[in-house]
Amino acid sequence: MSRVELLSPEGLRVDGRRPEELRKITSTTAVLSQADGSAYLEHGNTKVLAAVYGPREARHRALVLHDRAILNVEFNVAPFSTGERRRRTKNDKRLLEMASFVKQTFEPVVITTLYPRSQIDIYLQIIQHDGGTLQACINAATMALIDAGIAMTDYVCACTAGWVEREPALDLNHIEESSDTSEVTIAMLPKSGKVTLVQMESRLHVDKLEDVLSLAGKGCKHIHQVIDKTIRDRAEELARKMAV
């Protein structure tokens, strides 16, 4: 049984990146005409679309909170997005779990008390999957929320890091993710440096955790710069249009 060599003798990874290198991130906001806010994010070969509807009237009266808005996150994976076609049902536990992670990540950041008795829907559509879905979704959701003009205390930037063979590596792709590598996803508020989500589902030696976390933290800071640039460019463009 041949195993994929994840780190070449020169210290390069399967896709030619250095261990501390992110994949290319391209993003745009306001891509959908129907949604109140939307964003499209390409993280390497992972492509995610996020749409925000709301704040609007809550769908179920029973769920209404009198002093704040409720967040609702729905996940949708396009059947053609993965290598193997898989029909994912709406009740797939894995998807529900991911949606719940995203929801809990944003709950402390969105100032929900400004929108009492209403609901904010965040819809995430994965169009192409190449590892790091959760981080891409959180980053896209941040941009879509900003685009929708929903009040937040800070950006939320997420990044993954893992331990590949002999050293920590940033931003694992699908091949690295699926070959028994331990992977940590963290979501950070870049201004305060607070961490809103840490998620790991595999074994990692305690001594290595510190390195991996600090690397992921660095990744978050970098992603913040990329996202922030897109948001600022968009805001400038809007300001220019309004001035005319």
């Binding site: 129907q34 949604a35 749409a51 509807y53 729905e74 949708n76 059947p79 995430l124 559509q125």
Partner: peptide
């Protein structure tokens, strides 16, 4: 198969 997901319209 056509999927009209809630992302596409309110």
């Amino acid at each position: 198969n056509v999927d009209l997901s809630p992302i596409s319209s309110s």
